[in-house]
């Protein structure tokens, strides 16, 4: 191997091989994937061809504006380094048995995401369906207490606290309706006369977490009955 052109060709084609095999082929297969209705119906023209039903909702749904802002907070804080957003199939790991999701996630679940946050580390639990696990006002309250200081609702957790997403302030006249509702005798509650209220970033982040739910079927990934 004394010859620069020969050596260089080998070096070039070695990487070109996987670049076309993985990246380009992967892109051809998945790069045009679109949201879909939950089930398909036979086409009017050709009953052997399955098509999406007219007028049905197409999943995954787009994020709301505030949830999109919350995703940015999720990115800024590096949540991905301890939390995945992918549910593995039954029989491979215990994701579904742990209640982290209703079904495995598939490529189509991510097609609306401008940044895909699959993650590779589960220092904490998976969050692909966390909005289904902690839903509504109860879920919102839980998430705020948990983010302010995880020990409040999850003693023994190694998750960092995010006090900088909250404001501790003196109660003037009426307490804020948004103030965190600590459990009675919680050692993390603010002193009497003070309250802890979420900043806009905390509110956005929690709305994002609440929006994370894989509670719809896709043709290739139905939720089992």
């Amino acid at each position: 191997m004394k010859n620069l052109p020969t050596l260089f060709c080998g070096i070039f084609f070695a990487l070109a091989f996987s670049f076309s095999g993985l990246i380009l082929t992967g892109h051809i297969q998945l790069g045009g994937l679109e949201p879909s209705t939950e089930t398909l119906v036979p086409s009017d023209d050709d009953p052997n061809v399955m098509v999406m039903e007219e007028g049905q909702t197409r999943y995954p749904l787009p994020l709301s504006g505030i949830a999109q802002q919350g995703k940015q907070v999720y990115i800024e804080l590096g949540c991905i380094y301890c939390h995945t957003q992918q549910i593995r199939r039954p029989g491979f790991g215990a994701d579904i048995e742990r209640g982290w999701g209703l079904r495995q996630t598939v490529a189509r679940d991510y097609v609306r995401q401008d940044r895909v946050l699959l993650g590779t580390m589960r220092t904490g639990p998976d969050l692909a369906h966390v909005g289904g696990r902690y839903a509504g006002d109860a879920g919102r309250d839980w998430n705020h207490l948990h983010l302010y200081n995880p020990q409040t609702v999850s003693p023994g957790s190694t998750m960092p606290p995010y006090p900088f997403l909250y404001e501790t302030r003196e109660i003037i006249n009426e307490p804020s309706p948004k103030a965190l509702d600590f459990p009675a005798d919680s050692e993390y509650a603010p002193p009497p006369g003070y309250e802890i209220v979420p900043t806009r970033r905390a509110e956005a982040l929690v709305e994002y977490l609440l929006s994370l739910r894989v509670d719809y079927s896709l043709p290739e990934a139905p939720i089992p009955e």
Binding site: S18, F19, L22, I23, G26, H27, L30, G31, G32, L33, A107, R108, Y110, V111, Q113, D114, R115, V116, L118
Partner: peptide, 14 residues
């Protein structure tokens, strides 16, 4: 120029 969906993850780990 983000690729669609999990293509990003494929590129990321490549």
């Amino acid at each position: 120029f983000p690729a669609r969906g999990v293509v990003q993850a494929v590129v990321n780990w490549w």
